[in-house]
């Protein structure tokens, strides 16, 4: 971040870095729960970590309304996204094609994002949840498409938040093929929990 309130650079090379970021996202989406470190992400912006910023720069444009949780809108992230991605910002989480939340504060909002329709389940939102930590050992056990047997994941959130997240994800999974798809972001790391993934506590 610079201190002048000006706009800073996003991807160093928007074409190649954007492609590499997308490949990271696709690898994460195709292998739910696998922690993928993005190779050439942008720096973080305000409350957005590099991985969350990379997702938005890679996928958002004028056709994809974006919802940022209130704690993320104040420190320049919104201006940078308007400038670099050109995406409209919405204040209604159920209108966002992309929704960015913090795990500590945003779980109640996560329950309100759009799930698409039975005819068009692809219209379900893509939510990005910023978590304090991610590890391949942890209390969560994941099964489903993209996972050969099962995969473990830890998110560095307390038991109460974990229980709240599991309830939302369980309800989301049960709605299949409708539902939202979740990216977890922490620093340069990204992992995905698409709607097909069944998440259970060990």
């Amino acid at each position: 971040m610079n201190g002048t309130g000006g706009i800073v650079r996003a991807f160093d090379d928007p074409v190649v870095d954007g492609t590499l970021a997308f490949r990271g996202l696709m690898q994460a989406q195709a292998n739910p729960g696998r922690i993928v470190t993005l190779s050439r992400p942008p720096g973080g912006i305000g409350g957005l970590c590099p991985a969350a910023f990379a997702v938005l720069l890679t996928l958002c444009d004028s056709g994809t309304p974006l919802y940022l949780e209130p704690s993320l809108t104040s420190d320049g992230a919104a201006d940078h996204l308007r400038f670099h991605a050109g995406c409209p910002l919405t204040e209604d989480p159920s209108k966002g094609h992309f929704v960015v939340l913090n795990a500590e504060t945003g779980l109640a909002i996560l329950a309100r994002v759009t799930r698409g329709t039975a005819d068009y389940p692809d219209r379900g939102a893509t939510a990005i949840l910023q978590v304090p930590a991610m590890s391949p050992q942890g209390p969560l056990t994941l099964t489903g498409p993209g996972i050969e047997t099962s995969r473990r994941l830890g998110l560095g959130i307390d038991a109460q938040a974990t229980a709240a997240l599991l309830e939302i994800l369980g309800e989301n999974h049960a709605l299949f093929p409708m539902g939202f798809d979740l990216f977890l972001a922490c620093g340069r790391d990204i992992a995905a929990l698409p709607r097909t993934t069944k998440v259970e506590l060990n």
Partner: peptide, 28 residues
């Protein structure tokens, strides 16, 4: 790079990620 403009790639990339999330469903 790879012929398509970046806006088009973003649109296709969004469709691809949704397609992976809903296996076998045809994303327009």
């Amino acid at each position: 790079f790879a012929y398509l403009d970046e806006q088009t790639k973003r649109m296709i990339r969004r469709a691809l990620l949704k397609a992976i999330a809903i296996p076998g469903y045809q994303v327009p």
